[in-house]
Amino acid sequence: MLEARLPSAVTLKKIIDAVKELVQDANFDCNDSGIALQAMDSSHVALVALLMRAEGFDPYRCDRNIALGINFATLAKVMKCAGNDDNLTIKAGEDADVLSLMFESTNSDRISEFDIKLMDVDADHLGIPETDYSATIKMPSAEFQRICRDLSVMSETVTIEAVKDAVKFIASGDTGSGSITVKPNQAVDKKDMEVTVTLQEPVKLAFSLKYLNHFAKASTLAGSVTLSLSDDVPLMI
């Protein structure tokens, strides 16, 4: 039995909005520490890993481990029906074949209830190896989203070059090229506006902007993003 109540639905709305282009069908793995999602996109180019800790819900109850197989396009449609400030309760019975979602407006004058059919999603759990990255860049997430969007006008791929005291985003295509250089800024007032480049050694790698733009949709969830790069290993965002 799972019953979890989120004080405001906006968090789950943003999460689903951020992953729905990448994840078709996947399991919400629920246990007493929270709800986890781990899924690759259909072309196996990207992996989404998410944990919603039990502490973020009130109350949170999960009697035994349960995997809820969900079609994320359906869940995204249902989440559109929730108001940002509604409190949201998700429930799944013992051998549930539906996930129940309830949205309650702040003054409880509107209660919406949806059931979405659950499906069997056989997904193996992948181990993400611990990696000591050559370069780790921390920057405002909105800025990263802006860079990915801007450079998409020039090319479908972006080269990210991390050197001492700077990170450069370069896009070159048939019509021309563009580059955006971001430099570390110390002692900023807002932590989220900080830019730091931690370098073990310089690194220069190319990535598909299609996926970076998908990842950047999660920018509304956190003010700061960390990019970790090393040769021959996936970019960690």
Partner: peptide, 14 residues
């Protein structure tokens, strides 16, 4: 040219 690689071989099946 840019060649997109997939992740399949990277992660360990647990």
């Amino acid at each position: 040219g840019f060649k997109q690689v997939t992740l399949s071989s990277y992660f360990t099946r647990r």
